[in-house]
Amino acid sequence: MFIALFGAVESGVIYAIMALGVYLSFRVLDFPDLTVDGSFVTGAGITGVLIVNGTPPVLATLIGALAGFIAGCITGILHTAGKINALLSGILMMIALYSINLRFMGQPTVSLLNESTLVSQIESLWASTGIDSALNGMLNVFELDRVPTTWAILIMMAILTLAIKFLLDYFLKTEIGLAIRATGDNQKMIRSLSANTNFLIIIGIGLSNGLVALSGALIGQHGGFANLNMGIGMIVIGLASVIIGEALFGKKTITRVTLAVIGGAIIYRVVVTVALRVDYLSIQSSDLKLITAILVIAALVTPKILQARKDKKRRQAKRAALMEQQKESEASA
């Protein structure tokens, strides 16, 4: 169980980059962008093919992310210049990317098992530091049967994800970042303040999908393969992460929300892993999409029910106090 949870947190940290991308489009720009399902695969596929053909993994990963950025920009152009509804332009791009990804990959699955990837490079660099044995030594206290083979991915990916979080926080507070946020908040107003909202939407959706593709590229290298269908339902997983994170950790400031989104992504992975391992539930991996949908619905509905109940209790308490007062004054009179 510990190893499974460890693995869940590990991939959760990588999926968190995708969730940050979804946060940027869905929350900041208020643009429900379905390109994500395609651009995640674009990142994984292009990076995979480049690695197989001998491109250095770091460069291949960056090119994968860039390809996602371009795909996102095209969705943005469809919506702004083409004046196509936001949802529809995302769907169109997602469908188009399915064919484009297959063209790039040449086959539905690209295996990276015997290749030198970013992940394997980090692991071998890490092995020489000896941090693993020190960390696993600390775990001995819990008397586990098995300890993780390497902490490299968890720690290095956590550093990368946090770095992206801080960059995103900074970006959203720059003059351009403020204008992007205002575009999602009140387009008429920011246009009257001389911001080119079309350009900002294109850049914003591009950046969002760049992050999604980067996440896909890393997940592909982490899992050892890129598959044409690995992006199906990715947007919902991203939404689940954003919504669960916001519900659990709050959304007061940008810095807080981006951290919450990362937390949401990790928790989502943990929940899924636990659900799959509880035998008497007999959940199969094909049930995961249903579980995801239920999670999102629960995270959306529960806070509202709780708030309504809290308000009702408060009103009832006030009413009761008032009645009490009246009774007392009647009694004294």
Partner: peptide, 20 residues
Amino acid sequence: EENLAMAYARNKKRRLVPGV
């Protein structure tokens, strides 16, 4: 302050520097 910062940038070119 963020709203004011956006208005402040109106007659300038928006850059990647902190707005506030």
